[in-house]
């Protein structure tokens, strides 16, 4: 699927500095088929392929001279990639690593290796585990039958290995109260033995499967040049990030299905400015810090 381009004048965002380097390490392959996935990942979506260890190392090496601050890994489900543990072990020699996972495919031996790798490193390894409701009914309606329990099992495994996962929660219903959602997750996780639950709440991105599940963007949902006046451009992912895929380097983790978002083959080629003409850019603009480990909140108009 390709994202439509809008026929409008869009502001251009320069890369301030490449702080965050992302890897689409499992392509678009996932063991789950979540109904809100903005790149429609599934067991059968091989639109983007896996990255192997050698490829990741090539980009890690290039990232050193560019002064990259942190590394992020996503998919698809990263732990479907047979090189994933080795990739994280390698990355922790370069800098901090965060992996975005659905938490349903962990193996003890992997987490033991990763515990040892993080302990030996100056840098931290963060796990962001996706979960979309604090009840089985709410979560499973989006992520699939039985996933609620499987995700919690994954969270418990991480806790057993002394990791402190960040539960990444998408606000999947418009009428959901964000505070209620947050409090519900705090209760759920404490009940599961997670004494200091870490939670990040995200808006949906109305592209990919999500456009069919709920709704797509409206005609006026876009960023115009006037909207950039007095706006903190650092809130936009494209001002400080790039995304490595098996098909080249893209501007951000969200727009990999947009042909104009492919900026080159090497990191050096990808450093050029980007016109934020996509509708998903509007969500990034509204909330900011969408892809960081910190929480995202809708900003005052």
């Amino acid at each position: 699927m390709q994202l439509p381009l809008l026929d409008t004048t869009a502001p251009t965002v320069a890369l301030t500095h490449l702080d965050d380097l992302w890897f689409q390490v499992a392509g678009t392959t996932c063991n789950l088929t979540c109904r809100h996935c903005f790149i429609s990942c599934s067991p059968h979506n091989h639109n983007f392929g896996f990255l192997d260890l050698a490829t990741v190392q090539r980009y890690l090496d290039e990232s050193v001279s560019l002064g990259v601050k942190e590394y992020y890994f996503t998919g698809g489900e990263p732990f479907l990639n047979r090189d994933m543990v080795a990739i994280l072990e390698l990355t922790l020699r370069y800098g901090p690593a965060t992996v975005l996972t659905n938490g349903t495919v962990f193996r003890n031996e992997w987490l033991e290796r990763l515990r040892a790798a993080e302990a030996a490193s100056t840098y931290g390894l963060e796990f962001r585990v996706s979960m979309d409701g604090f009840t089985p009914a709410e979560n499973d309606a989006v992520r699939g039958d039985g996933t609620f329990e499987r995700i919690l099992q994954g969270v418990r495994l991480l806790l057993d290995h002394d990791f402190l996962p960040i539960l990444t929660v998408t606000k999947t219903r418009d009428d959901q109260d964000e505070s209620d959602l947050f409090d519900g997750f705090v209760r759920l996780l404490k009940d599961c033995g997670y004494a200091r639950p870490r939670i990040k709440i995200l808006p949906t991105l109305r592209i990919g499967a999500e456009a069919d599940r709920q709704r797509g963007y409206g005609e006026t949902d876009r960023v115009t040049p006037e909207m950039m006046a007095a706006y903190d451009v650092h809130l936009l992912v494209c001002s400080h990030s790039r995304m490595v895929t098996d098909r080249g380097v893209y501007v951000c983790p969200i727009l990999i299905e947009a042909p104009d978002a492919r900026l080159g083959t090497t990191l050096a080629e990808s450093l050029r400015p980007f016109a934020i003409k996509h509708q998903a850019c509007y969500t990034c603009y509204q909330y900011g810090a969408l892809c960081s480990n910190a929480s995202s909140r809708e900003r005052d108009a």
């Binding site: 050193v64 002064g67 370069y94 800098g95 840098y123």
Partner: peptide, 21 residues
């Protein structure tokens, strides 16, 4: 040096980023 309220933690700041700064 680039932002007053940027958090530079030991575990989330790569050495090559500091070199750059």
């Amino acid at each position: 040096p680039r932002r007053t309220n940027e958090f530079l933690w030991e575990s989330t700041t790569s050495t090559h980023f500091l070199d750059h700064l």
